[in-house]
Structures are given as structure tokens and as C-alpha cells.
Amino acid sequence: MYKNTLRKEAHAWKQIIELRLSEQEASMLRFYVDELAITDLHWGMFIPAIKGKELGHGSNIQGLETTGTFDPKSDDFIINNPTLTSRKWWPGGLVADIGMKFGNGAYNTMDNGVLWFDHVHIPRDQMLMRVSQVTRESKCVQSDVPRKLLYGTMVYVRQTIVANASCALSRAVCIATRNSAVQRQFVSQDGGPETQVIDYKTQQNKIFPLVATAYAYKFIGEWLKWLYTDVTQRLQANDFSTFPKAHACTAGLESLITSTTADAIEECRKLCSGHGYLCSSGLPELFVVYHYQKNKFWGQNSFSFSDTYYLSQVSENRSLSAKIN
């Protein structure tokens, strides 16, 4: 399954090059290759493997059990996992695969693995130290790069998550609406053909609000793209005045929209009655994948924090603004 997905990814890249597709066209092509792959993250950005998540710890970075000890003699950092719960969980399969995950295909096309360090030496000059450096004398030195610029990537990721939510919900709503238009139940009162399921008020009361929600989330996603572009331009000019607003909006909307989208996809599945259980409907895999994406950053890392934490950030926007500024 993993190898087949990589072959599809490679073919998609070949088509992009041969057809000279634009960035938007390439993204849509990848979107319709309906399997997730370990390379997906690099379609939007390139980052090294993130190994902050441990078997026994999640977003509490300060509570991680992994140790990093600096050795002045060798000029190395010595990384070690002293316990079972300190082993790195969910990175790309590096040492061992963590096993099958929820769903038939879904994230099982991703090589999520476990990694553990046994006193591994990493040269000090090979650490990622653009913002903060550690000297040979074990002193921490801050660079002149404004630390607030680091938040730009976080805003980008959040607005992307919201945009993806509108796409996922649109697919689910489209499937449920088409099924309701094709399915017929019970003879009409005038003796004509059976009534289309979508003509029943009870079905309309469930589907139509979801259709409207899909459109609304699309518009919100476009607005967040504009907000990200505006904030990025301001940050580059050392103008941080709008960042607290962007931080609060993206945090709150990500939490709200991902939760409601996950529930809406399940509602669409139920609106298709028994057909919603068929893998050929597309809904079971969409349900599993989206729920997984809501909680994992493409199967490699947490979406940072739980919904509760994000909502608390919105409610504490004033204190956050004071900290950031």
C-alpha cells in the first residue's frame, strides 16, 4: 500500500512537469490522487522530520523525557531516550513501524514509525540554529532575527487546515446530495414515481445547512489566505500590529471548523443510509482521513494542541497580545 502510493505520487510529479502545470493546478491534481503519502507535507513547505512527539508526551515540549546533553570535549550534543515512553512516536518510519491505524486505507499509506536514540552524537555546528545558537562554551546566544517572524509559518499552517476543511466538507456534501437525488423512497400521493429522498423536508433540513456551511468555510479559507499574506508582508516590515488578530482568528477558526467539519462528514455518511458504509461511496475513507488529519499533522506530528487549548488562546487573546508584543 505504501509503495503503491509512492508510485502514484511519482506519477503525479511527472504529469506536473510534462504538462507544465501551475502551482494551483498541481495542487488540485494532487488533491484528486485520493491517497495520502509521506511526501504530502512538502507540497506546501519543506521541513525536516519533526520528532517532538513521544509515546508518553504530546504538546508539552518542556515535559519531554528525551535528553540532550552537550559535551564540550567533542563539541557534540548527545541525544538519548532513557525510557520507553520517551521514544519518538509518529515520525516517518525510521526504526520500526507503529502498526496499522484506524481505517481500511486512510493513513495506512503513511509510514508512521517509532524512533529511539541511544546516546547519539550530533555535532553542535549541525544543529538548526538560525534563531538561537549554542556556543562552544555552552552559552545560548540569540540572533538578530525577530522571533515574531517564526509565527508566520504557524499562521500559514492554520489557514491551510481551514482551507482543506472546506474541500473535505464539499466532497462529503456532494456525495450525500447526489445520493439523495438518485435514491427514491415510497410512492408519491398522486400515484407517480417514487419520491426522491432529497424532496423530503427532513432530508433537506439536514443537507442544505451543510451545503451552506461548505460554501461559508470556502469563503473563510479565502479570507484567511488574504490575512496570512497581509500579516506576512507586515512581519517582514517589522509591523506586528495585526499579528495578535491573525493568531486569535486562525487558532479559533481552526478549532471550530475542523470539529464541525469532522461531525458534518459523519452526518453526510448517515444521510446516505446503508450506502454510506460502502468504501466505494468515498465517505468512509474521507471520514477516517479527515478525523486523522484533524488530530495529526499529516500523520507525522500533532496539529500542535487540542481544540480546548486553541479555544483558550482565543479567550486569552489580550494576554497573548501582551506576551507577543
Rank of each mutant, 00 (worst) to 15 (best):
H57P: 01
H57D: 00
H57S: 06
G58K: 02
S59Q: 06
S59P: 06
S59E: 00
N60F: 12
I61P: 09
I61T: 12
I61Y: 15
I61N: 06
Q62W: 07
Q62M: 15
Q62C: 12
Q62K: 15
G63L: 07
G63Y: 02
G63A: 13
G63P: 03
L64S: 07
L64R: 14
L64A: 11
L64V: 13
L64Y: 03
E65D: 14
T66W: 01
T67D: 05
G68L: 11
G68N: 10
G68T: 05
T69K: 09
F70W: 14
F70L: 09
F70V: 06
F70G: 05
D71H: 05
D71Q: 09
D71P: 09
D71G: 04
P72R: 15
P72F: 11
P72K: 07
K73I: 09
K73C: 01
K73T: 12
S74D: 06
S74G: 10
S74T: 14
D75A: 10
D75W: 10
D76F: 05
D76S: 14
F77M: 14
F77Y: 08
F77V: 10
I78M: 12
I78L: 10
I78W: 02
I78D: 12
I79Y: 13
N80D: 15
N81I: 15
N81C: 13
N81H: 11
N81Y: 06
P82A: 10
T83Y: 09
T83D: 14
L84K: 12
L84D: 12
L84N: 14
T85V: 07
T85Q: 03
S86F: 00
S86T: 02
S86C: 02
S86D: 06
K88E: 00
K88A: 04
K88G: 00
W89K: 07
W89A: 13
P91M: 03
P91Y: 09
P91F: 02
G92Y: 00
G92N: 09
G93I: 00
G93C: 03
G93S: 00
G93E: 07
G93V: 00
L94R: 00
L94W: 09
L94A: 06
V95C: 03
A96Q: 14
D97L: 12
D97M: 12
I98L: 15
